[in-house]
Design a binder for these strands. Structure first.
Lengths: 133, 133
DNA sequence: CTTGCTGCAAAGGTTTTGCATTGTT
DNA sequence: AACAATGCAAAACCTTTGCAGCAAG
């Protein structure tokens, strides 16, 4: 039996901290850009590897929009509001007792592990821009 | 003022027909493969262009999973069950009166156009395979 | 020391785009 | 005849991977 011991590195720490600090959900490239301010020599490959590992361990969620993967370090079940104009993804915290009913109804398809609710629209910032125009 | 008149082509028709006929949600590549049986000389670029146009017009939805875009020609609000093993996406039609409440709660973020509920798990087929193994 | 992790560059995959040609209208 | 749509190939993306060197334990 082989046991891989994970090592704590500067890069991992800064990426995790960054994900915790933001309330939108950046793509790997956005994380890369942000983290580079603190670690100028970090590589994009490392960002991808760290994010992937976080997802595997359950420390982060991957959510997809328009073919790009976004990362979300909050693992509790919550909703997302996705702006169709600027692409930003916001967290929405509301209680969802009714969703448990959905789960039971959809069980005929297989075993359900989790669910995700996305709301699509135009965020306030983009609405303002439109009005200004 | 320039008005672009859309033309109806063989390619568009066959792609639309195909999307209507399936109940999972294929990627562009999968559409390409299927449509090629009827139109052997169609190009992948055309498939991408047609699918993109359909989305723009609202005739189709784009949903993303693991960095790939899947297409769904049903525009009514319904749920998706996504198999985390084989990647197939199934439609789930259940009434969701409770979701309307969510919409109103999330309106502080902006104007909401639509919502999407995804259930993640393992589909029956894959469950069977696992048991057999 | 050992070996997991990183940076770099190259490779792999999906999606988009430029352009000559085709086919609707 | 106009010009939107196509096919082809190249380009532009995003993401993964191989490998030598670095650094955490």
């Amino acid at each position: 039996m082989i046991i891989n011991k994970e090592r704590s590195t500067h890069q991992k720490k800064i990426i995790a901290d960054y994900l915790q600090s933001v309330d939108t959900h950046p793509t790997a490239k956005q994380v890369y850009k942000a983290v580079k301010k603190k670690l100028p020599y970090i590589s994009l490959a490392t960002v991808y590897r760290v994010l992937k590992n976080m997802s595997k361990k359950g420390d982060s969620l991957q959510l997809s929009y328009k073919g790009e993967i976004h990362f979300d370090a909050r693992t509790s079940n919550h909703l997302h509001f996705i702006c169709q104009q600027c692409g930003k993804i916001y967290d929405v915290f509301v209680s969802t007792p009714s969703l448990d009913k959905l789960e039971s109804k959809a069980q005929k398809f297989g075993k359900i592990n989790s669910y995700k609710v996305n709301l699509y629209g135009i965020c306030k910032k983009c609405l303002k821009k439109r009005r200004a125009h």
